[in-house]
Structure formats: C-alpha cells, structure tokens
Design a protein around this nucleic acid. Structure first.
Lengths: 195, 195
DNA sequence: AAATTCATGTAATAAGTTACATGATTCC
DNA sequence: GGAATCATGTAACTTATTACATGAATTT
C-alpha cells in the first residue's frame, strides 16, 4: 500500500486535509501516481489508526470545517524506513503493448491509426512536461534545494521515458510503412549498440 | 478489463486451457502484462457467458482432464474491435518514483543504495531480454511473419524503455555523487535537445 | 443564473492478490 | 523419496474505481 506512504511524504511538508492532498497529488506526482479523492479519504483514518498521523478539526465559519492530518514521529520513521528500501516493482499492465502484440490481426491502416494516436498523446504529454505546471512546481514553498532536486529528477524521468516511447513509436510507424514485416523479424529489431 | 482481451488474443492462435494460458502469458507478454493463475480461471467462464468462447472437456486418462476454450466468431470480432481502438492509458503507479520524489528525506548513501539496486535490476532485465526466452519465442509455431513482427516490436519496446530507465538512473547516481543538488535544480535537469 | 471552489464522506462494484485444496504422473 | 509438471478451482482479502450525496461562498 504505497498510497499511504505517498501521503506520509506530503504530510512531512506540513499538515494537510484530504482536499489539500488531492490537489497536491495532482500538481506534482500525478504522472506517476494519482489517487482518487475517495481513496484518499478512505486511507486517512487508517493512517491515524496506525499512529502515523493525528487529526485536528479546524473550524471555519465561511467554509466547511477542515480535518487536518499531521505526521507523527512514528509516521516520519515509517516514511524513512519505506524510503530506504527499494520498493518492488508492481506488475506493469500495458493494454497498449498487449494491443501491439496482437496487431497482426489488424490491417496496416488500422494499426497505424492506433500508433499515430498514441504518438500524438506522447507529444502532448511532452509539451505539458516542458511548459505545464509540473515543470514549475509551486505547490510547496520553503522546500530545501535538495528536496527540489529529487522532484526534478522524477520530472526528468517522465520526460526521458516519454521521449523514449515516442522514438519507439515513430520508428515502428516508419517500419510498418516500409513494409518491414515482410522481411521477417529483422525489420522489427533495433540494432544493438555497436560497442 | 483487458485481461479478457489478452486471452482472446491468445485463443486466436488456437484453443487453450487455463493452464496453457498461464504458461503462454509467462513466456510472452509477462513483462508488460501478467496474470495470476486464479485470475485466469476466474475470467474464463466470463468469456463463455459473453459468447466470446466455447468450452470443451477433453478427457485424459494419464493426466487431469482439460477444459479447452476456443474463440468464437463473436470473440474474434470483439478482439478486432478492441485492437482497432487506441486503449486509454491506465494510471501509472510507480512506487519507485514516489520514493525518489521524497528522497530529500534520506541521506545520500541511502538514496544511492536504492538507486544502485534499481540499476542492477534493470541490467538484469536487459540481460534477460537479450539472451532469455523472451527473445526466442517458441510458444507458438506456424505463426505468420507479420504476427511475429509485432511480437518483436513489443520486445523492442521493453529493451528501449529499460535502456532509457537505466541511462536515467546512472546519470542520477552520478549527479548525486557530484553533489549536483547543491547547485540547485539545474543539476537535475537533462539539457534540452539543442535543435 | 450557473459554475467553480472548498470540504467532507459512503456504497457498490471491479480488478487483482494471496492462500488454500486436490491428486496422478514423471523426472531427478 | 522429493520435486516438478499437469490441471482444476474457490474464498478471503486488498486495492482502486465509479457514482452518489451535501451545502455554503465565491467567481463568471
């Protein structure tokens, strides 16, 4: 259950409500971890039960009351422990790759349409990464330089992996247009690095 | 529910039992889609209910009886329809990137240990891709060249994305060793392509 | 007047994991 | 003798999604 740990990570920057957390997820880690509002609200009482956070009701007159969750020492310890252990990779599930895998069943034009659509998606994602809110994170102030460094590392990962996927799709499209599959598997395999 | 569609894709190469399917998943698409035995057995009756497959009991004396599922015309049609539509991206959930994101909380040596472990994992995956069973798929014979082309395309994707991730991790390790985070965010960002 | 923001939650369902259960044959 | 292969399934649980429900204040 790493959603709980992601929440601990954010609470470490200061007390937050379920509502705050939802916004903060969206503004920062949403491209590699996002959570539904309902899931966040379901997880918060659990953090309290485990002793990782405490709740405080903050009364407001003009707006709905807030329930602020704060990280406890036990919570911070749990976070550090979790961060220090390489997390196992969850099984990847890519419907898109399943689709490509079985695309022998489709005529060229239909496969190409799907690939073009995916390529465009990736270009849009890249444009967002380079200009959008993710590249100018303002969702927390007075954050140490070192913390920001790691934030940007993940952004960098997102950019690099999107670029890599796009290169792959574009080359796949080209190979299909050339009719590479008629020449056997060689047409599908990228040359190995000649080192 | 794309597990159902992945199964349809395999049934399209001939009738299979739950047991066959489990092996075939492992030997081919496991690095981008894998399913537990229990999940496959839970899904199969559903395919039948939807009219996408039929079952036939094959009695065996020396071994347990087999329940062979065959694709129906409706099933093939469903498969083609699914293949022709670009599938929406499921939300990515990467505990590893969450971990990196919050790694400001950890001292250098602990972060580096986690990154090194992940780098080694990627090197192992790459070695497997290049020599292992995935690169010599024998799990189906008499498969058209064009089908194999798409199989190899997905393998190629796996190799390229593993290489891309490894490059990223190695450069991250280097930047941390150099103390790049002291110089602000510039140390974390890959130079933009100078075009 | 309508939409958005702020703020909380619950219920039903779907998808996936873990663990259990059985039993013959064949390979080491 | 023990492990692996062949072959089926079910039950309990966890995780995540979809959809519903409420309501004041502010912005368009």
């Amino acid at each position: 259950m790493s959603l709980a740990h992601a929440i601990l990570g954010f609470l470490n920057y200061g007390p937050k409500t379920g509502y705050d957390l939802k916004r903060v997820f969206e503004a920062s880690v949403s491209y590699f971890w996002n959570a539904r509002q309902s899931q966040i609200y379901q997880t918060l009482p659990d953090l309290e039960k485990r002793g990782w956070a405490t709740v405080e009701l903050v009364r407001q007159d003009d707006r709905p009351n807030r329930k602020e969750y704060s990280l406890t020492d036990a919570g911070r310890e749990e976070l550090r422990h979790w961060l220090g252990q390489a997390q196992p990779n969850p099984p990847i599930r890519s419907p898109f790759l399943v689709q490509v895998f079985f695309s022998g069943e489709l005529p060229d034009d239909e496969v190409l349409a799907v690939l073009e659509e995916k390529a465009q998606e990736l270009r849009d994602v890249l444009a967002l990464f380079e200009t959008g809110p993710v590249s100018q994170p303002v969702y927390a102030e007075h954050v140490p330089k070192r913390d920001r460094f790691f934030w940007y590392l993940t952004l960098d990962y997102g950019i690099e992996s999107a670029r890599s996927s796009l290169r792959w799709i574009e080359s796949a499209i080209e190979r299909i247009r050339e009719g590479a599959y008629e020449r056997g598997i060689d047409g599908a395999i990228t040359e190995k690095e000649t080192t």
